[in-house]
Design a protein around this nucleic acid. Structure first.
Ligand SMILES: [Mn+2]
Ligand SMILES: [Mn+2]
Ligand SMILES: [Zn+2]
Ligand SMILES: [Zn+2]
Lengths: 132, 132
DNA sequence: GTATTTAATAGTAATAATTATCAAAAAGGA
DNA sequence: TCCTTTTTGATAATTATTACTATTAAATAC
């Protein structure tokens, strides 16, 4: 995979963020360094980088995918109201993959615990849906 | 909640299916019994039934929502290629909620294990994306 | 039983997120 | 440098979902 300037900066900015941004949220950040970048380039590269195993694509509830530059294994919680995602610190004494008894023919290569909840903002009753 | 004919048949057909159908997949099934039903009625009722806790809405970010008429607690695996969802049988000896050490201000009310993998069709290399 | 109110439906328009397309530019050799 | 391949920016197209609205059906009041 070629390391273009766009690709490098997208990865760099994603890694800086601890917010698990959506494509358009990351677009807003990257635009500050590359004002002429296209949203399509963001989508394309996030897809590509996750294929290459350099970032995580988070397909949790909510209508938008989110992305994570932190490749260390860890759990997430997502807000069922606004879709925000946060890391969760957990005890590390369970091997999830060992729990499977029957996967109905699916080849499983990843398993993780996901929590659902309300983010601090949504707990306050803020209508933060639109900020998502 | 009124029990209309449409609502009843949507619930009935969803419960028959073990496939975790999308709204449009269920639409195709229900149409056989109610040829004049609207896709909007399917969406509306699936939303309503899940609000009432009668069915599960399975949300995978950036993908079509899927629905499950089986309310017994169980785990799912979804195919990262085509989005199909299947039940996973698991050992039932872990209390996920006890694993949390720090949820960064999120109020957590549910936690579950979710698996990612490839469905039997996608393993064969079938381009089943369109059949989804 | 008929009138009035309320909820649900079908059909379709609007919206939001993502993906596809394509000509131009950039990257990486030979 | 010249040639080939990859990537990009701009935008069109698609997909999934939600919103809207006139009509119909159900429930309740009279
Ligand atoms: Mn994370
Ligand atoms: Mn299920
Ligand atoms: Zn929230
Ligand atoms: Zn598949």
């Amino acid at each position: 995979m070629r390391i273009t300037n766009q690709r490098e900066i997208i990865l760099e900015e994603l890694r800086k963020l601890k917010t698990h941004p959506t494509a358009d949220e990351l677009y807003d950040v990257v635009k500050k360094r590359l004002p002429r970048i296209s949203i399509a380039t963001i989508y394309r590269n996030l897809e590509r980088l996750s294929e290459e195993g350099m970032i995580h694509k988070l397909e949790y509830g909510g209508r938008q995918k989110r992305f994570d530059g932190d490749m260390r294994p860890h759990c997430h919680v997502f807000c069922v109201k606004c879709g925000r995602v946060s890391d969760v610190e957990t005890k590390n004494d369970v091997n999830i993959m060992d729990m499977v008894l029957d996967s109905k023919g699916f080849k499983i290569f990843e398993g993780g615990v996901q929590f659902e909840g309300l983010c601090p903002l949504c707990q306050k009753g803020d209508d933060c849906e639109t900020l998502q």
